[in-house]
Design a protein around this nucleic acid. Structure first.
Lengths: 110, 110
DNA sequence: AATGTATTTGGTAATATAGCCAAATAGCCA
DNA sequence: TGGCTATTTGGCTATATTACCAAATACATT
């Protein structure tokens, strides 16, 4: 059974790990609306340009975004848009968590 | 703009990060089929029981699974099943990646 | 060719994660 | 109660990740 864990799940985990960072999630969402160059994303997020560049390279390496050089800038865009659908489910988890927290609070107030 | 990155995306990232590990993906998939206790998952994955226990606590902490004590064991099950839908999208990414690799190979063979 | 803008790379320190072992805990059942 | 099984916790080491700065690179435009 052990053998079933490795190759497939490792490949998937790599992609999911690429999404698992606040700034990278922000980038994914921003690119879903429209393409952006590094400078724009840097401005939006407010971190060092080199930091954003590295985040983009993580996303690109995972196959989540593509880049295209145009005039003086490099424009990034989302490669596989279905990623966005996932966010709805994440929100479900968050709201379920919030509901549970509320329940615990209510029970202790009694 | 900087302010938009933090609270919402951090909460989401936390949940996604909880999924971003091969063994934890395996666990999520297994629990989607049916609930399992720690011992069963340990057996399936072939790691130390304490390691699996910690993985489960990561998943539980993120709100992805719930546990229920029954007789001598603790049974875990999936809390928000929509998680599974996401895997299809991950596969899309993987197959797009594979296609690209193939394209590169083909072009170099010429 | 020289300048200036945009992006990436290398180095480094701080922090986080993963795994194993040993030990602690929880609860069932004789 | 005392032993047994199942699970969790603490300690520790190895490895990975993140962010910043400084420096390198890539190009477009003058």
């Amino acid at each position: 059974m052990k053998s079933m864990v490795k190759p497939q799940h490792e490949a998937r985990a790599k992609i999911i790990k690429a999404m698992a960072h606040p700034s990278r999630l922000f980038i994914i969402e921003a690119l879903n609306k429209k393409e952006h160059c590094v400078g724009e994303l840097t401005e939006m997020i407010g971190a060092d340009a080199s930091t954003i560049s590295k985040h983009l390279s993580v996303l690109k390496n995972a196959g989540l975004v593509i880049d295209e050089k145009r005039s003086n800038s490099i424009y990034y865009s989302l490669r596989v848009p279905c990623i966005i659908d996932f966010f709805a489910c994440i929100e479900d988890v968050l709201s379920a968590n919030a509901k549970d927290s509320a329940k615990i609070l209510k029970c202790c107030k009694k």
